[in-house]
Design a protein around this nucleic acid. Structure first.
Lengths: 196, 196
DNA sequence: CCCATATAATTAGGACTCCTAATTAAATCT
DNA sequence: AGATTTAATTAGGAGTCCTAATTATATGGG
């Protein structure tokens, strides 16, 4: 437990606070709650079978009750509809309406201010930082602190360093394509957990 | 606005979520609210003149009303007292009681699980990551997205690269001491903003 | 086939978060 | 001295997030 580790944690705390603030500002502007915003964005970027109250709760680390509330609010605003799922009568999938998709599109830019400050860093530094983040997320996942990873490093289709000494050293067995360090995913929709 | 930037933001979002979760877990265990926990920790690590409702609000990006509520709760639990400030009759400083200090000590470990996962990284990688974080915080501060920085890079006492090619290239004019890259601070109590 | 159990989602009720607006009191400006 | 600014609190309201209870569907064993 070095001083350096403490500083890294403190820095992450700061950045975490920045994100909360940005999300809150977006919430005020758009007259949606933070959780409603995140729900819309999630729904617009995941396949229908993953768009369910229970799944959202699992992803966000909240209870189904909390998500159900937010979904209610979004349904009342006409941004999504609940649709029965043929394969299981207990399940309702959450589908964005056209207006919901339009909003989600706009909302997905809530991190823009942060992204603008990240953009000017040199490419090599950003790649190293991303690698650090991905490895950290992997560790947190394996330690059980995160329940959903969806990063390449924990995916059963991932082959680390399959093409050594190349610009694209890694490989995704699902897409059957070599991957550059900077192409490693943070939230892959096709991710399937390696059962290790 | 590259894909890489988006991934970095997404990764930060993930990590931000981890912090919220850890804080929430600590809150449940300790029967204090997240904001109460952060208040206690802040009070235990800052000088009395910075321990005021308005200052806390500024640091945390909340309204004084919100902080006042949390302070009320902490005062009722006997963890702090409000003390009149001789130099300004409107001001009340917030002082931890003995029990408050004891609790703050314990609570300051709420990030331990994250720190444990950071610890095993190679030193050089951690130093690079810290540098990246500090520069990002600096940029966010200069862009007005963060209102309080307290990192060396934005301090009027900081002399970047004053001792080139040394193990301790930077210099703090307040302590009058050379600083290694890994000694750069994230939340220095003596920090004074450079007026640039 | 049917009953017990498990799972998906919702509802109800409560503590806490966080805001805006209004109030009280002290400091500062003119 | 009177007007304005600043520090803090209070009151009231929308939203977060929980636990516990409820409804409905799926699944597995006798």
């Amino acid at each position: 437990m070095s001083e350096l580790d403490e500083k890294l944690v403190a820095a992450l705390e700061r950045l975490s606070h920045v994100m909360r603030t940005l999300l809150w500002e977006e919430a005020v502007q758009s007259r949606l709650s933070p959780i409603q915003i995140q729900t819309l964005i999630y729904l617009s970027s995941h396949p229908e079978e993953l768009c369910r109250v229970g799944q959202l709760a699992h992803e966000f680390g909240l209870t189904p009750a909390t998500i159900s509330d937010a979904v209610d609010a979004l349904a009342e605003k006409g941004l999504l509809v609940r649709r029965p799922w043929p394969e299981d009568g207990r399940v309702l999938t959450l589908c964005l309406t056209t207006e919901g998709q339009r909003q989600a599109q706009r909302l997905s830019r809530w991190t823009e201010a942060l992204q603008e400050q990240i953009a000017p860093f040199p490419l090599a530094e950003k790649e190293r930082a991303l690698r650090f983040f991905l490895e950290l997320i992997e560790r947190l996942y394996r330690a059980g602190i995160i329940t959903v990873a969806r990063v390449c490093l924990t995916c059963r289709f991932f082959r680390a360093n399959a093409h050594p000494n190349s610009q694209t050293p890694h490989h995704c067995a699902l897409m059957d394509k070599p991957l550059a360090e900077s192409k490693l995913r943070v939230d892959c929709p096709e991710h399937e957990a390696a059962h290790c």
